[in-house]
Design a protein around this nucleic acid. Sequence first.
RNA 1: GGCCCCGUAGCUCAGGGGAUAGAGCGGCCGCCUCCUAAGCGGCAGGUCGGAGGUUCGAAUCCUCCCGGGGUCACCA
Length: 580
Amino acid sequence: MNLFDQLRTAVLAALDTMEADGVLPPGLDRAAVTVEPPRDPAHGDMATNAAMVLAKPAGLPPRTIAEALAARMAADPRIASADVAGPGFLNLRLAPSVWQSHVSDILHAGAGYGRSSSGKGRSVNVEFVSANPTGPMHVGHVRGAVVGDALSNLLAFAGWRVTREYYINDGGAQVDVLARSAYERYREANGLSPEIREGLYPGDYLIPVGEALKAKYGDSLLNRPEGDWLADVREFATEMMMAMIRDDLAALGVSMDVYSSEKALYGTGKIEAALAQLREQGLIYEGVLTPPKGKTPEDWEPREQTLFRSTAHGDDVDRPVMKSDGGWTYFAPDIAYHYDKVQRGFDELIDIFGADHGGYVKRMKAAVSALSGGRVPLDIKLIQLVKLWKNGEPFKMSKRAGTFVTLRDVVEMAGADVTRFIMLTRKNDVALDFDFAKVLEQSKDNPVFYVQYANARVHSVLRKAAEAGVDVSDQALMDADYTKLSHPAELALIAKLAEWPRLVDIAARSNEPHRVAFYLYELASDFHGFWNRGNDEPSLRFVHDDSATTQAKIALARCTGVVIRSGLAILGVTPVEEMR
RNA sequence: GGCCCCGUAGCUCAGGGGAUAGAGCGGCCGCCUCCUAAGCGGCAGGUCGGAGGUUCGAAUCCUCCCGGGGUCACCA
């Protein structure tokens, strides 16, 4: 339980006594009572809205309630002052001893500080990337990969059991195109000139596939009808593409727990089973769709299809699951795939999609709602575009693929750490500019270096103190005399650190890993500010002649480092201990 | 036209129904005999796209409108 929860518990207990004393009528709903840090730190360490929330149901003026509550809260030894303010806020200032002992809490928890149990061990499946296995990952995949991975880290830190999953789209026409493209490279490897016709994939990355095909098949596939080789070449090429994609992901520091295959759903009865499940609920029928409202495509022709009644679960129109030629639409295996995830027992599903899949959200949620009987929530995060820039101009170029910028290009130019951090400096539903010049700049314009620099400074003073002969081992710091941390600036920094567990909970609850990046930036800013106050007030420096004082001050720096490290771990960014 | 997302300082963006709406960049003024100045402090800059509504209280929730982007049945 974090400090804010502890104080909320204290407030609720005080409300109990007020109820027992007849100050408040019994049975008031307190769900809306919050204890939060006030926006303006001058108001105190924490503020509660209890009086305002309860005023109306209690039939009492808010300030009357607030004052009675203030009197009771003031009796708590943890509370230094309790003041009624504004329309009925109760502002609480905590005793220095509360903050001082919090330093000890942070050091004892170490890397686990901020770890939460709010997930309660529930299981969540995070599906992300799921790029078609037809080539290397391109820049459009990077952001989704980073967001999915960081979100997974975040949820794990918040007490969820997390499965990272990649859905391989190896069942559609695009893998046939891959096979034909690879076949041309195979012909090339056999000394023939390839015919990269319109519609085939032209990228150089298929040349090694052609060579590998030659190594395996020699010339035995040459001059044979497509039907003889398509399936084998398709499987071979798909596997090589997936190996390449795995490498790409690894370069970005992402590793999946599970790879699921679309193709594996066909011919196994899984699609049929999922649809049977829907059919039982009366959600599958033969029908004719009406054209989109207000805009009829020119080639529109009514056709009878097998439809999923997604409108029964919140969609705007029903959706086809079968083409008029009797084949499945892409939606059908997707339904089966999500049914599989439901059957595997996950308590929650999360899909990370590109923003161009926005039209797909309602039908997928409808399917999961129907297939799980409303048990399993599905959250879909749409990832907006990343615009690449270099020297003020849009950046387009690839060494490997010719037509698009690859994930490799980005990682090689910017580095995995920088790439990951920058991708998390925006909400997922806002477009993001990625400027190679800017993200490599080593200044405070660049949040990555700003945060790294703060951590480096932490380690700098640790080294300095050690050189001066002070024992700054974690054990020694845990035994330090924290009463030496009494300056308001010191207590304020501890207060910022104390927000970390609360932030983890908030970010995890909303599935928003970018909040971690923003918090780290704020924490770094507070630390840099604190650091520079040491210029004017030597008492605020970390290293002193007296080793007991040094240990207490260093403990504060150490705590900052603990939180930065822990936050960076969630983002998947390597902490730096020294700037070079 | 339907649906989804976005609209907050000159620019790029934060902001779980709370108090006087924040940060960075850009502009102006300051701070290194002192732990990393790759940093810090201060000043200037706002009809939170608009109008209604819910609420003790709205940038935040609801409705409508305006502007920008995405998307719209036998492609995944």
